[in-house]
Amino acid sequence: MNLFRLAGDMTHLVSVVVLLLKIHTIKSCAGVSLKTQELYALVFAARYLDLFVHFVSLYNTVMKLVFLASSFTIVWYMRRHKIVRRTYDKEHDTFRHHFIVLPCLVLGLLLNEKFTFREVMWAFSIYLEAVAILPQLVLLQRTRNIDNLTAQYVFFLGAYRVLYIFNWIYRYFTEPHFVHWISWIAGIVQTLLYGDFFYYYILSWKNNVKLELPA
């Protein structure tokens, strides 16, 4: 494992910790998209089907369990926790997330590395992850007061995607057999979606003002 991959996984982990910290300690999920969180839970459930079949390393197994557990915990908090659920901004979280699941599934059936159940689910999860941030970005645009933790959550999530691209470039030159067009193209699309957010995040950080995304 190279440094980019490790740094990517760690920023991913930090993003989840930041979000759980906000939800668990402040008991608020204001500005957080339940749609995006549900999509992530589905992404991890589909991708980590191989958890008990295909062993990579202890590191991989533990990280998979962490991402699975945390994503379902966040969804549980937002849907069921009696205090947290009241802070959910349902009116503005209107992205029709169900409608992007089916196209991703069809794409997974058509474009995969091997036509087996696990490989189709893997490809499906890659495509779904690429667009899963969309409801969150839409909600951020509609949120007047984006709190720091929410902004940092999205920032770390985006940083994780950028670092994964560096990881692939590194692996491409160091591991001649490492070619994953599906994850590379989907990953680049996913990272580009953060472009606008990054621009305004860095701007707000430089000028020391509260983050606000133009509608």
């Binding site: 991708r47 390393s57 998979k64 590395e113 893997w122 994964y164 591991e175 057999h177 070619v179 994953h180």
Partner: peptide, 10 residues
């Protein structure tokens, strides 16, 4: 193109 089907990333 050789494809490494062992998905070792998260």
């Amino acid at each position: 193109v050789m494809v490494d089907i062992d998905h070792d990333e998260l």
